[in-house]
C-alpha cells in the first residue's frame, strides 16, 4: 500500500474506533459494540505498525532510527505533500 493510502486507512479505522468509543461511553455494556470497538482498535494498531515500519514514526515513542531522530522530519500534517 502507498503511504497516502495507508494513512487514509489508518484514519478511517481510527475514526471508527473513536465512534465506538463515544457510543460505549454512554452504552458501556453493549456486547456487540464492545466487539466492534475491539476489532477497530486492533486493525488500527496493525496498520499503524505497518505504516511506521515503512514510512517513519506517527508518535515520538516510535521513532526507531538509531542514527537520527526521524520524528523531526518534514512534512508535518498541516503541510501539503507534493
Amino acid at each position: 500500500m502507498s503511504q497516502n493510502e495507508l494513512l487514509k486507512q489508518i484514519s478511517a479505522y481510527a475514526f471508527a474506533e473513536k465512534e465506538w468509543n463515544l457510543y460505549l461511553d454512554t452504552h458501556p455494556t453493549d456486547k456487540d459494540a464492545l466487539k466492534k470497538h475491539k476489532a477497530m482498535a486492533e486493525k488500527t494498531r496493525e496498520l499503524v505498525k505497518e505504516y511506521e515500519q515503512n514510512f517513519g514514526p506517527l508518535t515520538s515513542m516510535s521513532a526507531l532510527d538509531p542514527n537520527c531522530f526521524d520524528w523531526i522530519t518534514e512534512p508535518w500534517p498541516w503541510e501539503q505533500c507534493n
Binding site: 520524528w71 523531526i72 522530519t73 518534514e74 508535518w76 498541516w78
Partner: peptide
C-alpha cells in the same frame, strides 16, 4: 508551530 521554518522547530 504552523509558521515555523524547519522540522526541528515544528517538532
Amino acid at each position: 508551530r504552523y509558521s515555523m521554518p524547519d522540522g526541528m522547530t515544528k517538532a
